[in-house]
Simulated scan of single mutants.
Amino acid sequence: MDNTIAIIPFTEALAHHFTALNKAWLQKYFEVEPVDEKMLANPKQYFIDKGGFIFFAMYNKEVAGTFALLKVSDTVFELSKMAVDEKFQGKNIGNAMMEFCMQEAKRLQLHKVILYSNTLLGPAIHLYKKYGFTEVPDFKSEYKRANIKMEIDIV
């Protein structure tokens, strides 16, 4: 085993991993909200067909994690639906996905990446701060669980 992490783009063959990883994560920490059901029922339609992206982190040729970039505008995307399979936690999957996300944001010449999270998720908040995300005061979110919005200026 070479323990390498590769980030690969969405394919229909991997779509079920996107849904399963996110549902497992949501059920463990919160609940699957109606907006999540909509996003996870047809991820290609919800993310990719609207100009966004879905990626998978592969660890030793297994799907270890996933995340999406949801298009908000031509210059702003939302980092969305980031999840790592529990059996791969502690293997720097989250770091690899964040590195890739930041490279993609630069490649796409985005001005900003935003995200919504919950402060109960200490390791996730720490990861976002490590990559330069800062808290946005006074925000609205369609997620009931979101009690923090963060953003990073890319350009």
Rank of each mutant, 00 (worst) to 15 (best):
K130T: 14
H126N: 10
A105H: 00
G51Y: 04
K23L: 08
L14E: 05
D2A: 12
Y29D: 12
P34R: 01
N60P: 06
V136K: 04
L70E: 08
A146Q: 03
K129P: 04
Y46M: 07
Q27R: 12
M150P: 05
K38W: 03
K38H: 09
L21C: 07
V72Y: 06
A64M: 07
D85S: 12
D74K: 14
T19Q: 08
N92F: 06
G52D: 09
A41Y: 09
D85C: 13
E12F: 04
K130M: 11
K81W: 01
A24L: 15
A24Y: 05
H16G: 09
K144D: 15
K129I: 06
K106F: 00
A68W: 00
F67E: 00
V32D: 09
L115W: 00
V136I: 14
E37C: 10
K28F: 03
T4P: 02
G94K: 07
N42R: 07
M1P: 10
A15V: 08
A105E: 00
P9S: 05
A64V: 00
E37F: 04
N22T: 09
K61D: 15
M98F: 08
P123F: 02
T75M: 01
E37V: 13
I54F: 04
M1R: 14
M102D: 05
K144W: 11
K81P: 10
E37Q: 14
K112I: 06
K71Y: 11
K91G: 02
Y143K: 04
A20M: 10
V136P: 04
K71S: 12
E12T: 03
H16I: 08
Y46A: 12
A146T: 01
L127H: 04
A24K: 15
N22V: 07
I125P: 01
T4A: 12
